[in-house]
Design a protein around this nucleic acid. Structure first.
Lengths: 155, 155
DNA sequence: AGTGAAAGGTTAGACCA
DNA sequence: TGGTCTAACCTTTCACT
């Protein structure tokens, strides 16, 4: 789908506050709210907008520990391992990567003990598990509210 | 802030769809929408809900490349480096970590050339930059819609 | 694609239990 | 806290451009 400046302006607003009323978006981009409604629907249908999510403070819901994990998986067992990984509570993101690790994860747990349990009792027991490295997150310095919306791509 | 089951149910719904009308949340958790309104306001004020963000497909906005980057920073220059990092367009997350790397980043760029530019022309030029490793993301296998809301913490 | 108008639904805030 | 009420506001649709 081709995006124009209006689409990008709408995306920018919805990335920073997904609950902004269409009527206010309309005011800000100087269009009618019927248009905003129409455009947002089109962006959703095209898969440009994949959803709207509340950003919850992990600490506030009892998730006091988080880590980035590199995993090495035995050749040929990637599929089973990946399918199993996503089922673990606490596994938040699963990425396939080049370089030292085949898979990188972002995981959350209640505390460091929960992290240990997830890593040793669950992930290290997977079929095809070769080795891993856990980088415990001591603090998150910065998190963008959304993707940078570049000035243009294929207009 | 202490969360009860009602709060957790609301968080769960808003994590999966942040634009769900309060009236529908009310129906689902069997309470009045005034109560939902009240609770959500309280969750926002307490910082449990930090915001609401549209989840935009990176590819659709011209961000065809992404990576996880480990950085080593010279002792004593962490502050300046961290402050500089967050200013780069494309730097999405900055985490302080234990282990092989001091800092881990999630970055986005238009393509691999944009990734190279960000890494070599900007990040590697920072004061205090010691070394880095870039794990290019070939694909994202899974991304949770929100944090796991555990059954209880400190009720 | 975009608009204005109107019906129907939602929210915010004051007030009561 | 939770609930009721209500005015203001928002969403959605539709005929028209």
């Amino acid at each position: 789908m081709e995006l124009d400046d209006t689409d990008r302006a709408i995306l920018d607003i919805l990335q920073s506050n997904a609950r902004t009323p269409f009527s206010e978006i309309a005011r800000r981009i100087d269009m009618s709210s019927a248009t905003v409604h129409d455009r947002v629907g089109r962006l959703e249908d095209a898969g440009v907008i994949r959803g709207y999510h509340a950003d919850v403070d992990p600490g506030a819901v009892g998730l006091g520990a988080s880590a980035i994990v590199g995993l090495r998986i035995e050749q040929g067992q990637e599929r089973e391992a990946l399918d199993a990984l996503r089922e673990f509570e606490g596994v938040h993101e699963v990425h396939l990567t080049t370089g030292e690790w085949d898979v990188m994860l972002r995981v959350f747990a209640e505390d460091t003990d929960g992290l240990r349990e997830l890593m040793f009792d669950h992930i290290a027991q997977l079929d095809g598990f070769a080795r891993s490295q856990t980088m415990v997150i001591l603090g998150t310095e910065y998190e963008a509210e959304g993707l940078p919306i570049l000035d243009d791509d294929a207009e």
